[in-house]
Nucleic acid binder design. Structure first.
Lengths: 334, 334
DNA sequence: TTGAAAGCGTTACCAT
DNA sequence: ATGGTAACGCTTTCAA
């Protein structure tokens, strides 16, 4: 059941069928109906590979996210889901590629073999070789997150610095004087992970502005690491009364560590940070946090990429989101 | 930079280049080296669309998972990640498709336009029209989870009935006499969601065998719903001393509800269920639970699918996993 | 308004 | 061991 078969049964040429389908050339009402009839009877659908070969576009987007090993966060799943749904609305498929560096196998396949028309990159680093590579070969892409020099690139992101800063100010307003930052793991900072660096920067700056005593910690992406991290914080400075976390996966462990140290949240100790909204709500007490609008970011990324694909010479655009802190139950007066 | 260009520069024909690449026909050592040289210089990679058109295979697998709306669970992300990684090891890409029913748009695209060679279906229902559809059109697929009649199909899954039953027995062994089941939401049961039904079945049967008083509840996939569910459970029968949950997303709410009711876990009340391991560990106290080996399931699903694609007439195979309960800190003597 | 035919970049069969 | 060429199924230009 290819286009030739449809043409034969409808008594027209293949080109007429093609035009009837695409509407790029007028087709008489009569033949159009005849063709539609045959198509419905046969259940014909044009072959995607042939179509891709003919017009040089695959109607597929690549979504590049880092390999497992490190656990995935809830945020990442929300991104993936929203990207797939948004892409589907524009008639694009999404193929996944796990890749940390531009040397990855599946990453090279997507690009080299032209399996996708464009790509969305997650988990951006300040200096990102994947971004450099895409830019160098002029391949259309949008990043979720931004590099150190995002001027000429297309991206969506949240303002981690502003978010971390507003967490600090929120704590300062409540009277806290000694605070800690629970960041992502050491190795992510070392490779220049954007959110970890910008969050750290915002935290540090805001703490200085408010004259707070501030310490920063790197913490593994697990409950166990979070628990250990709290112990360290309280050991280093027992007068600490609040923390800001950029580490979603450690959150449960942070709570547990505080409980073990006999610090009641929010009475004796305040916790806040950046996290996915529904995750923040599973905690007890519910986490006062800047909710990452992952679904919206995914949708915006797709919209930008589609726009870029439709207008290859458009000037780069971006969206920087600064969601407000959702006040819940994990922070209180010092 | 297509195969013709390579051929020209190497001074051979296109077919020779093709055979040098695929190894399906002997090529003299000399020309092979010359060709490889040119390929390296040009950075040539065969075009995936052309290749797919020529040999009728896309080297892409479809991964069908349900649309958002209901939040995704941690398990689902683990599946996705492991499927992508395993597929990559077999040189397959993975394209995602959100679909609840066989009528979905992106689902139809994947199938109808032959964008994928085979598919992996998640979130299986006992009577699943997607499975029926795939079977009817003889499209190669593997399900994560199994239908009511899985005899002639390829699948991987976990034995939810056995897992729920062993949770019940664990509680009975601890002396609990009145227990509750926190299941997935009403609408999922109504559409015949496998894990919810089989879990319910295993729970009910095991409770009867041990002569326990048992009640079952349907609970929304959120912390708030979990909180409400616990309130209901304790209202319906205040003598309830333990619960089994199939609902990962509600877990945080269940703990909160118990705390609000003044029931200390595990001292006054035991909680157990089926969940992803690292999720179970973020809870305080850590959840004693049957850990779903999501990563392993994803890998096995890919292996089965690849096998099926390589041997179209092989007889259906499957893997039924029954992970043991990991004893943590949320259960204790009645 | 429609048809014929030349691509798109591979693969694989048929020759030599 | 290698080359020529007809597929694969679609789009689009050129003609009528």
């Amino acid at each position: 059941m290819n286009i030739g078969e449809v043409a034969k049964r409808a008594g027209v040429s293949r080109s007429t069928v093609s035009y009837a389908l695409s509407g790029k050339r007028p087709v008489s009402e009569q033949t159009r109906r005849k063709i539609e009839q045959v198509i419905a009877d046969l259940g014909y659908r044009p072959n995607a590979s042939a179509r891709a070969l003919a017009n040089g576009r695959t109607s597929t987007l690549g979504l590049v996210f880092p390999p497992a090993g490190g656990h995935y966060t809830g945020m990442q799943l929300d991104f993936i889901g929203s990207v797939v749904e948004a892409a589907s609305a524009y008639d694009y498929d999404v193929t996944l590629s796990t890749s940390g560096m531009d040397s990855d196998r599946s990453f090279q396949r997507l690009l080299g073999e032209r399996r996708v028309d464009g790509a969305i990159l997650m988990e951006i680093r300040l200096e990102d070789d994947r971004v450099d590579h895409f830019t160098r070969v002029d391949f259309p892409f949008v990043t979720i997150g931004r590099t150190a020099h995002p001027e000429q690139t297309w991206w969506v992101g949240i303002d981690h610095a502003a978010l971390a800063a507003s967490c600090v100010r929120h704590l300062a307003d409540l009277g806290h004087r000694t605070v800690a930052l629970v960041n992502r793991p050491e190795h992510l900072l070392r490779v220049g992970y954007e959110s970890a660096h910008r969050g750290l920067e915002g935290f540090t700056k805001a703490a200085a502005e408010r004259g707070l005593t501030a310490r920063t910690y790197r913490c593994g992406d697990s409950a166990a690491a979070g628990e250990a991290c709290v112990a360290q914080i309280l050991h280093d400075d027992p007068t600490t009364t609040a923390l800001v976390t950029l580490n979603e996966a450690a959150l449960g462990g942070l709570y547990r560590g505080l409980a073990e140290a006999g610090r009641l949240v929010p009475h004796d100790f305040s916790v806040t940070g950046i996290a996915a909204g529904h995750w923040a709500e599973t905690m007890t007490p519910q986490l006062t946090a800047a909710d990452v609008p992952a679904a919206e970011l995914g949708r915006l990324a797709v919209e930008l990429l589609v726009e870029r694909l439709d207008h290859p010479d458009a000037t780069p655009r971006h969206h920087l989101l600064t969601p407000p802190i959702a006040l819940r139950a994990s922070t209180g007066p010092a």
